[in-house]
Nucleic acid binder design. Sequence first.
RNA 1: GGACGAUUAGCUCAGUUGGUAGAGCAUUCGCUUGACGUGCGAAAGGUCAAAGGUUCAAGCCCUUUAUCGUCCACCA
Length: 878
Amino acid sequence: MDRALSKRYDPQEVENEWYKVWEKNFSGVSEEINEKRRPYTIVMPPPNVTGRLHMGHALDETVQDVIIRFKRMRGFDVLWLPGTDHSAIATEAKIVAQMREEGISKAQLGREAFLKRAFEWKENYGGQIVSQIKRLGCSCDWSKERFTMDEGCSKAVIEVFVNLYGRGLIYKGERTVNWCPKCKTSISDAEVEYTERDGYLWHINYDVEGGGTLTIATTRPETMLGDTAVAVNGKDERFKNLVGKTAIVPLVNRRVPIIADDHVLMDFGTGVLKVTPAHDPNDFEIGLRHRLPSINVMTQDGKINENGDKYRGLGLMEAREAILKDLEAFGKLAGTKPLKHNVGLCYRCGETIEPMALVQWFVRMKELAKPAIDAVRKKEVEFVPERFEKIYFNWLENIKDWCISRQLWWGHRIPAYYCADCSHMMVAKEPMVSCQRCGSKKIKQDEDTLDTWFSSALWPFSTLGWPEKTKMLDKFFPTQTLVTAYDIIFFWVARMVFMSLDQMKVAPFKYVYIHGLVRDAQGRKMSKSLGNGVDPLSVIERDGADALRMALMIGVSPGSDVKFSDEKVLLARNFTNKIWNAARFILMNVPEELDGELRVNELEIADKWVIGKLNHLIDEVSANLDGFEFGIALQKIYDFTWDVFCDWYIEIAKVKIKTQEPNVRGVLVFVMRNILKLLHPFMPFVTEELWQAFQSDGESIMIQPWSESDRGAMFETEIAEFEKLVLVIRAIRSARAEGKVPQNKKVKVYILTEDEIIKNSGKLIMALGFAESVDFDVCGVKTDEMFATNTGAARIFVLVVDAVDKGKERARLVTMLEKYQKEHEVLEQRLAKKEIWEKAPNVAAKYKVEMEELTRCIANVEESLQQIAEGGGLGDGD
RNA sequence: GGACGAUUAGCUCAGUUGGUAGAGCAUUCGCUUGACGUGCGAAAGGUCAAAGGUUCAAGCCCUUUAUCGUCCACCA
């Protein structure tokens, strides 16, 4: 690396450069099966092709990249396949909006020209999200990039549609569907979001032929224009005699039957229900049961249609006002009650959804859902965290047929063809040119396109070449892990599972890793309307992609939402700088012999400590990553790097470098290299840049073998022993600070201990505790010059001479004594119980040792107090 | 109505098989120490939402409750 390391890490300098290298070197995975390296596949959830990168993407892509980079280093033959989604409604809406500005409508342009324009739009904006994903450092294989509407994916869509239709699993029929008047298309049940609104329950009197009145209750009076019955519960004594008679719908004066149906609740509203089969799913069912006609009163853009008599042309709300006014005028309005009720909204545009009976295409779900439920039950597919399988089950177990037709142009056109002469319908893979029944050449293709999620559901295999039998499919399917947020379990995850099980006879992936949504610092969902979204690209530009990635990954647990805050970015950015400078220190002090062989059997205690800690870290982090515990893994690497390596080992290394101890360089480089590798999945750029400084072969860190712990160098006892030293040194520093000893002043230290390790580590203790001499016996200390402290768990008694604050010693010793005595008591009580010896002898033994230590400490403190009380100095005095 | 999650330091959150509570930020004190002031050392701060239970031992397991959040279902 010829770039001199500056004092501060500058991410901009390195990021673009490295991504170019990676993209060149690591795209184009081989289709051939590698006997030694097992394949590991992730298909990227395709973002909207014309979208912009937001924090949700950033989190999703980062998680995937962490997994992929980890698995790659672990020796898997990885494929992370990227791509984009045509996002039918969202994209078409954007194009239509743009056209509106130019004063052009879809109808004016025509289907063909519209599609031409849409593809041009896609070409222009489709690259944007891709280049933004690249800036995150994602190591996906861009040579395999796919698009849901490319030739192959489209072919897969047609193949599945025709197949399902042939087996009767796709059908065309009239059902109540969710109509969005703004998007002017039907949408599936999953695409409706319910929200509670304050509304009214209006009571309206319907005359009964032959005398009497029935008061119905409704929240949508405008739908009465389409009423074809009035229903009561058959068990309701109040209305029993009216069943079978005829009611008159006010305003339109339609004669409708009064029917009995169990769906009507006696205790809600007035117990009388107006039945509008065309505009309510429940009423539609009632209509089927009672063979009621269905009168549609709405146009596609949410106005009253020709069936609405004099209200024709009014918007629904206008119609409601007008109808209520008229009802009142006719004396038919019996009352108004406020009511909180749920209103369905379009998940794309937020418009109120109008249920409407329409002829649409549906996927029959019951048969497809069952294997998908079983696959998760049998753990062929596992959710991480597991609890999300409940959501999945709940949805699939109560699923209704899936409305897949959309009245849009941007999407996969339904491969159904109609004969203009005999109306014969044909569903076929290839465009039909003549009618199979009458031979007519006048053939028209179905106008509708498919739900975006229909093509997304095939994504894990359509992207690998299916329906062709490709080597890619052979090698990389089924995939291993799918990473996504919980909000699209219904839309996408469940549908991929049942489509794959049905078409491929195998689940599309083994694990579904679910992460949460990214929220702002106040915990609110980031949204355009709130304007609280943080642009990941601005974070990258300011603090680097590594900092962004770390900010998203640190301290998160699977399935829970991530609060994104500047504090986290700062933490992450500071951490990149910390590693950078740790590396800089090593490079400045270890200019040569970078290979620095690590000779384990020549190590001293501090070396063994850091190596041992590293080995434990490697094991833990590897296990955490295998278990999708990214937040924990990253936290552990962070703690080790900062606390263990930088704050302690490098400080010790400074002492060792001065005294020219032979092993220090090897240890520093060895630990640093391992930190870089462990950290690389999370922070690819800075680790790559530094890796290059610690080796000479120029190879990318991406393909380095993952760290393996050395089982022979776990050093448990050394770790425990060294940590006693740490406590002693901390105690000295603490005593100095409490005693207000100026930082630049050295101090005499006396330590009461029988510990051999501590006795033999005077040099280190002196150096790191800013002490000038360390004695291990009590001697020559006047009480008014000393400051005492305990050392926490090790309970070694430390005396620091030359303390300035002379008044506090006694009180401090008393406090210490009380604390020790209390701890002693607690342990004594625990150990008094027989059961602990029987059931957890190792724990009991540990407690016993601690208690003995405490006993010694108490004696020491008491002795000191005694001496103070006698007014003399400790020991010989001088 | 059903399900799930959250409740731990002033704030934001970790805490993986039960063994004497952790981090970052903020606060206080002290440091221009030749890697880093995006830094270093020290300190203060928590009856782990409440009440029961299991256990030698509970933040963690069980039961109930409260508050907040999310999803699903839905009475027009």
